[in-house]
C-alpha cells in the first residue's frame, strides 16, 4: 500500500519537474508558490511513505566501519553515551548502530556515560537493541556497563590509568574483579577502540585529548552536526574517523545493511530521517538547475531580440 503511495508521489514530483523544465525553456520564471508546493509534497510524501535511500559512506565514516569490521573477534570496544535527550535524535542512531556492529562482530563491549542524563539513554540502547537482538549475549562476558560517574574530565584522567580507581563496581553493584570482561583490563589503554558519542563537554573532544592522545588508543567519535566542524581538525591524526550528524549515522546504518543480512529488518531512524531531507535536497538541486536554464534561455532570447 505504502509503496503505491510512494511511487505515486515520486511520479507526481518527476512529472511536475519535467513540466516546469519545459516551461522554463521558454525563458520564463515560475511563481515561487509552485516551488513551495513542491517542497511540501516532497517532504510530506517522503515522511508519510517512509522513503529511504541507500547511503554510500564517505571516507571519514568508512574508516570507522572498517576499523570495527577488521578488529579481530573479541576485541575490546568502549562506547560512551555522552549526550542528553535533546541530542538524542541525532546521535542515538549512531550508538545503536555501533552496538549492533560490535555485537555481531563478537567484540567485547564496555558501555559507560559521563552525563547524568545519558544514563537512561544508555539503558535504552541496552534494553531495546542489545538484549532483544542479541539474546545470546551474556552480561559480564560479552558486554558490561559501568553506568554514570560524575567528574567529567576527572573520570577520564583516572580511567586512563585504572578503571578500578574510579569504578569499584559496575552499574549493578558487582565488583569489577568478579566480571570476566574486566579480568584482563586495567585501564582505558587496554581498549582496542573507543567510541565516544555526544556533542557537548565532557564529550568526544575530551576523550580525544585526555584518553586517546595520552593513551594512544584509537578513537572514533560520533557527533552532533553542529559540533562536527569543530572536531574535524582532529581527523585523521587524533581520531581515526568520525560520524557527523544524522548523515553520518545514516551512512553507518546503510553500511550495516549492506554487509549484514540479519539487519535487514532493523529500524533505521537515521536513514528514515535522511529520506525526506535527501528528497528535499534533490528537489532544490533540480530547481537550481531549472533556474539556470531559465536564466540562459532568457539571456539568449534577449541577445536575439
Amino acid at each position: 500500500m505504502t509503496n503505491i503511495g510512494l511511487y505515486f508521489s515520486i511520479g507526481i514530483i518527476v512529472i511536475g519537474l519535467l513540466a516546469i523544465l519545459r516551461y522554463s525553456l521558454k525563458g520564463k520564471d515560475i511563481d515561487r508558490r509552485i516551488i513551495f508546493l513542491f517542497m511540501f509534497i516532497t517532504v510530506a510524501s517522503s515522511l508519510l511513505f517512509k522513503m529511504e535511500f541507500p547511503e554510500k559512506p564517505t571516507l571519514i565514516v568508512k574508516k570507522v566501519f572498517n576499523k570495527i569490521e577488521n578488529l579481530p573477534e573479541g576485541s575490546r570496544i568502549l562506547i560512551s553515551f555522552d549526550f542528553d535527550p535533546a541530542m538524542k535524535p541525532e546521535v542515538m542512531p549512531m550508538a545503536n548502530a555501533f552496538v549492533r556492529h560490535c555485537m555481531v562482530k563478537k567484540h567485547k563491549l564496555y558501555i559507560m556515560t559521563l552525563w547524568a542524563t545519558g544514563q537512561a539513554l544508555m539503558l535504552e540502547s541496552i534494553e531495546e537493541v542489545l538484549k532483544p537482538e542479541f539474546p545470546d549475549a551474556v552480561y559480564g562476558e560479552d558486554y558490561t556497563s559501568l553506568g554514570f560517574k560524575a567528574g567529567g574530565v576527572g573520570v577520564l584522567n583516572v580511567i586512563i590509568t585504572d578503571f578500578r580507581k574510579m569504578y569499584a563496581t559496575d552499574e549493578h553493584g558487582t565488583p569489577l574483579d568478579e566480571i570476566p570482561l574486566f579480568a584482563e583490563v586495567t585501564s582505558a589503554k587496554d581498549m582496542d577502540l573507543i567510541l565516544p558519542i555526544g556533542g557537548g563537554a565532557p564529550g568526544p573532544k575530551e576523550w580525544i585529548l585526555f584518553v586517546g592522545d595520552p593513551g594512544k588508543v584509537p578513537i572514533a567519535p560520533g557527533l552532533a552536526a553542529v559540533v562536527a566542524p569543530l572536531i574535524y581538525p582532529y581527523y585523521p591524526k587524533q581520531a581515526i574517523g568520525l560520524l557527523g550528524g544524522v548523515k553520518g549515522a545514516a551512512e553507518y546504518e546503510s553500511e550495516l545493511l549492506r554487509n549484514y543480512d540479519q539487519f535487514k529488518d532493523m529500524d533505521t531512524p537515521a536513514l528514515s530521517m535522511m529520506g525526506p531531507q535527501t528528497m528535499a535536497h534533490i528537489v532544490i538541486i533540480a530547481f537550481i538547475i531549472i533556474g539556470n536554464i531559465t536564466y540562459f534561455r532568457k539571456r539568449r532570447m534577449n541577445d536575439n531580440a
Partner: peptide, 16 residues
C-alpha cells in the same frame, strides 16, 4: 525557512 531556502536557491544561484 525550509520553503524560503528552496525559493531563494532557485532565484539566487544563477551563473550571472
Amino acid at each position: 525557512l525550509a520553503f524560503f531556502v528552496a525559493s531563494a536557491s532557485y532565484r539566487a544561484f544563477r551563473a550571472k
